[in-house]
Simulated scan of single mutants.
Amino acid sequence: MTSRVCVVTGAGRGIGRAAAIHLSGQGHRVALVARTESELVSTAAECPGETLVLPTDVTRPDSAGEILDTIAEKWGLTQILVAAAGRNRSAKLDETTDSHWQSMLDLNLTSVFQWLRAALPPMAANGWGRAIVVSSIAGKRGFKHLSAYAAAKHGVIGLVRSAALELAHTGVTVNAVCPAYVDTELTERTIESIVAQAGWTRADALHHVNSLQPIGRMISTNEVVQALSALIDNAGMTGQSIHVDGGLVHG
């Protein structure tokens, strides 16, 4: 197996953390990016291989270029980008403020655009690269009270498809994974929000979230990482948005 230089955004928690640990276990060098340094240090401690802890706010326009330059100075060209930074926030449409709307676009769409814009041209010039964006099943269908988040996630899938077509002849692939509810801290906050807004017990809210997946449970981070790993390995898959949703959405 060829050891690659990787960067994972959102590496402090959830899917990003699981992806970073997996890539490290596969023999790759992994740069860990998120806002909270202590969470990145915790992730690094679980990685068996070489890591860089690079705290930053990925929504800051210059962050992508600065981080990629730092990685290049230490290790060379970034060859695998996993854009896993993201969050959701629920509100009814008529209660979605402009700042709520903008924050969802800034993190879940605009920051991904900025990271792809910075990372993909050097990969293309080098003749090999993989970019994988963690989108959501909310990028494939609507959900009540998630209009801003769903709009951003739909947008990022369009971004992935367009970038993949531009780079299809270069040896670089660009794909997305689209999980349903994953057993992470982010989903725990969703459950807490359901409890607060609907007045349900936590047990009822958890049952509701589990029941949304036809398999009757949340998706594990490992199941998402398995899909991500397949996209790295397969040069013939590009412009795809792979569902990891327990059968929730077809097509």
Rank of each mutant, 00 (worst) to 15 (best):
R60W: 10
E95T: 03
L77I: 15
L93C: 08
C47M: 01
L52F: 02
I71K: 07
T51R: 01
A64K: 06
T59A: 12
G86W: 02
A44K: 00
K74G: 10
E73Y: 09
W75E: 09
P48A: 12
T43E: 02
V41G: 03
T56P: 07
E46F: 00
A45S: 10
D94S: 10
L81V: 15
A72L: 12
C47R: 00
L93H: 04
E73F: 10
D57S: 06
A45M: 02
N88P: 06
S42L: 11
I67H: 05
S90D: 11
S90K: 07
L81R: 10
N88Q: 15
Q79R: 11
D69C: 14
T59G: 09
L54N: 00
A72N: 13
G65V: 10
L81Y: 09
L68Q: 08
E50P: 09
R87K: 13
S42M: 05
D62Y: 08
K74E: 15
L81P: 10
D94R: 09
P55F: 03
A44Q: 02
S90F: 12
L54M: 03
A44F: 00
G49M: 04
G86I: 03
E95D: 09
T51A: 01
A45C: 00
K92M: 13
L54W: 00
R60S: 13
P55N: 02
V41C: 06
R60H: 14
T43M: 01
I80V: 15
A45K: 04
S63W: 02
G65P: 06
V82F: 11
W75M: 06
K92T: 13
S90E: 12
V53P: 05
D69S: 15
G49E: 06
S63H: 05
C47D: 01
V58I: 09
A44S: 09
A83I: 10
V53H: 03
P61I: 02
S63L: 09
W75A: 08
A72C: 12
T59N: 06
G49P: 02
W75G: 09
S63P: 06
L68N: 07
A83P: 05
A85M: 04
E95A: 10
P61F: 04
T56Q: 14
A85P: 03
I67F: 06
G86A: 06
P61H: 05
A85Q: 04
E66R: 15
E73V: 13
C47G: 01
E50T: 10
N88M: 13
Q79M: 08
S90V: 11
G65Y: 11
E50H: 04
A45N: 03
R87L: 13
I67V: 15
L52R: 06
D94L: 12
K74Q: 15
V53A: 01
E95Y: 04
E50S: 08
A84Q: 08
I80E: 08
L68D: 08
T59Y: 07
T78S: 13
A44E: 02
A44T: 00
A91R: 05
V58W: 03
A91L: 02
S63R: 05
A84Y: 07
P61K: 05
A83M: 12
E73N: 14
D69K: 14
T56Y: 11
T70Y: 10
K92H: 11
S90Y: 10
E46R: 04
R89Y: 11
P55C: 01
D57L: 05
